[in-house]
Write a protein that binds this DNA or RNA. Structure first.
Length: 281
DNA sequence: CTCCAGGGGTTCC
DNA sequence: GGAACCCATGGA
């Protein structure tokens, strides 16, 4: 049992259930079972402490990074709120949502699978992917397959996924990652536009999937319009419609992102797309 | 039976 | 460049 105490207001269920990850399952009686980078754990909050059952002490830095516990979210959210009263109401409603730092390849594949798809089926497909090609970690717990394993498959080998046309996209992603053509390290050294361009060389990765990977894996806040994650997070948390205080998110998000991008990129001019999206749509 | 769900590729103009 | 259409699944 690994105890992470400095959680800074983390809302575990909102964070794991908002749709930024598809590799955690809620357990009856509370808690979540999940896998990341070959580590299978059960997570639950014990008061303000994040308890990870099955995690090794040596993996403390890994999980602290995964849950972004080093981020000063209260300060970040305060900055969000300073930009908009309406946004502040939304942040107040779910202040504990955190953007995870998920392993790169897993995140890439999950969001390829997510295209034109719905969350329950995304989770079902990723579950079959892990169980079918991933290393068995414990009873009922399987690691995400490695790029090498996935890269060696043919589309027809992945029929068991029932992922449709996405199977060939997964293989292309695996091959490009396995060959080093696309890597987290390379992305980290690129500006937002170039990182997007590199990711979209993968078949089945367009601007949306690329943005999701850059945010949910690499925590590249600057590259993603806020609504990409918050709008969906809200939709996930409130399937029948967000409370009134949350609705402005959809309208204000783009404005906010533009402001945030400008504030957080001193030398950098928010890119054209962000500005354009803010105006249009 | 039809619609569509957290896109993107291809093929037109 | 943008619009139309296709892609496989499975749930509503």
């Amino acid at each position: 049992m690994l105890l992470l105490e400095n959680t800074r207001g983390l809302d575990l269920s909102a964070t794991l259930g908002c749709g930024q990850t598809f590799l955690w399952k809620p357990l009856e009686g509370g808690g979540w079972a999940g896998v990341a980078a070959g580590r299978a754990v059960t997570a639950r909050m014990e008061g303000a402490v994040l308890a990870l059952e099955g995690a090794k002490e040596a993996d403390r830095p890994f999980w602290e990074n995964y849950f972004a516990l080093d981020m000063d979210y209260p300060a970040l959210l305060a900055r969000f709120c300073a930009g908009s009263k309406r946004l502040a109401a939304c942040v107040e409603h779910r202040p504990g949502i955190r953007v995870l730092r998920q392993p790169f390849f897993e995140t890439l594949c999950c969001f390829i699978i997510s295209q034109n798809n719905n969350i329950p089926r995304i989770a079902a497909i990723t579950g079959r992917l892990c169980e079918g090609l991933g290393e068995k970690l414990a009873e009922g717990a399987y690691a995400f397959p490695t790029p090498q394993v996935l890269a060696a498959r043919q589309p027809e080998d992945l029929a068991f996924l029932r992922a449709g046309w996405r199977a060939e996209y997964l293989i292309d992603a695996a091959q490009k990652v396995a060959s080093g053509q696309v890597s987290e390290a390379a992305l980290a050294g690129l500006c937002d536009a170039d990182a997007r361009a590199l990711l979209t060389t993968i078949k089945g990765v367009g601007p949306k999937v690329a943005d999701c990977v850059l945010l949910y894996s690499l925590s590249r806040w600057s590259v993603v319009p806020m609504d990409v994650w918050m709008k969906r997070a809200m939709a996930r948390l409130f399937p029948r419609g967000a409370p009134a205080c949350c609705r402005p998110y959809q309208g204000i998000a783009q404005q906010f992102i533009f402001d945030y991008a400008r504030a957080s990129l001193p030398r950098g001019k928010a890119d054209k797309k962000t500005a354009k999206e803010r105006r249009g749509d």
